[in-house]
Design a protein around this nucleic acid. Structure first.
Lengths: 242, 242
DNA sequence: CGGTTCATTGATTAACCTCAACGACCGTGG
DNA sequence: CCACGGTCGTTGAGGTTAATCAATGAACCG
């Protein structure tokens, strides 16, 4: 929160923003865009740094430009539960536009770069550009879809199934086909199982060759095999012939 | 889907709509309101009736005026998972505004009355009334909050805790302090546990006097005791002195 | 009054949690 | 340079919980 690197983005930065397609700025004329950019800030966060905390008042809605952010809540019994993973292109802190406070605790799982956009600026834009309002709604909806996917895919079934589905999820959403590497504790918090169980399952997958851990590449996995573990859709089981 | 009762709402109907506070119509002058109402439809649904199905294209965004609607998804392994319960005042089918298709299957758990609003009308209103756009976002955000609460409260902890938390949830959100009665199967689908386990826990609660079932009143429960089962927040447990 | 649906309960098995110990890795400071 | 403490992943043993398979009873409806 203190003296972290922070600067306004250039037009160049903006062009390369993973969020560009969602168009905070995409369909905006260059002069207008330049005007808006001066209000924005790029900021870096170190691994494990708290980006914001639940209940805290805030001013900036952010777009993830790089890295992986976990958004957590705490269950009634005090356990941490990860309710969303934000990756490049995702928006975090949208709830500020409603009541000015953060509804989650956001923590960097890898080195992270955010583009911070003042709530007022976003707000004004929602009011004046109907198309932009629609984009924001789409962004909002993405949160819903994500949370619901966590409910159906990552919070049901056996530990084996959940871990497999998490790997598929990471693979599918990971930037550049990269499947980001995350720790056992966080996996557990995502899946609603303990760290020990997670570790056992992951170790088992590795022994069976479904999976290997590469510090640089992230998880490298045999998607076909993982998919099979993740759960069948039809009535029968997958591998053995009838 | 066939010849179900359907009529446009009157101004009177509108005044008494549980959604009035969210203001699809609240801050709207009466003449304008009357103009819009002609496009709306009130429609009733019987218990267990499918209101819409996942993937289906749709035209109407709806507000629940009466009853209880479950929104379900199917997990990769085919099990039904309830991702949201919509009660009077809640909006369902908002996702139509993004891609014109329903993202859940909606089923009436009790007799239900909906106010159906054509997507185009809502759309046009979003474009012309910025305040309305904000209301829609708030509605969207309510879905997120709900889904996340399901993740943290209803998908973690023991079966006892989950059932207790579900009762508290129903009590808190139930219209008129009424805690709507739902079946064991649906409880299980909400909590990510089996019907049998749910039944055992509910039966146990009833034996212990935490809970009684009343066809008209819904669940009647000893909130203090249920809260205790639902889980402690502090470091120590609730009842016994140290 | 049969048939259907729903809740309940039992017996057994499988899955997971808890507590605990151990080793690998890493950065720090002697 | 190596010893130290920290964090993180792995693994084991034992206990608890919930899933599964199966049967029975209660309520409801035609």
């Amino acid at each position: 929160m203190t003296g972290a690197p922070s600067k306004p983005p250039s037009l160049q930065d903006c062009e390369h923003c993973p969020h560009h397609h969602v168009d905070v700025m995409g369909a905006t004329p260059e002069t207008e865009r330049a005007r808006l950019l001066q209000f924005f800030r790029l900021r870096q966060y170190a691994v494990r740094e708290v980006i914001y905390a639940e209940g805290e008042p805030g001013v900036f809605v952010s777009v993830v430009r790089r890295g992986l952010v976990k958004l957590t809540l705490y269950s009634r019994s005090g356990a941490e539960r990860i309710v969303r993973l934000a990756m490049p292109g995702d928006t975090i802190g949208l709830e500020l536009m409603l009541d000015g406070r953060f509804h989650h605790t956001a923590i960097a799982l890898t080195p992270v770069e955010l583009c911070l956009m003042p709530r007022d600026v976003v707000d004004e834009r929602v009011n004046t550009v109907p198309d932009f309002a629609r984009k924001v709604m789409a962004e909002w909806h993405a949160s819903v879809d994500d949370a619901e996917r966590f409910l159906t895919d990552l919070s049901t079934g056996t530990a084996h199934e959940r871990v497999a589905r998490l790997l598929l999820y990471l693979h599918e959403r990971g930037a550049g086909g990269r499947c980001p590497l995350i720790g056992r504790e966080d996996m557990g918090a995502l899946l609603g199982i303990t760290m020990e169980t997670t570790s056992r399952v992951v170790a088992e997958f590795k022994r069976e060759g479904l999976l290997q851990e590469d510090a640089h590449e992230g998880w490298r996995c045999d998607n076909v095999a993982v998919e099979r573990v993740a759960g069948r859709r039809g009535p029968a089981n997958a591998s053995p012939a009838p």
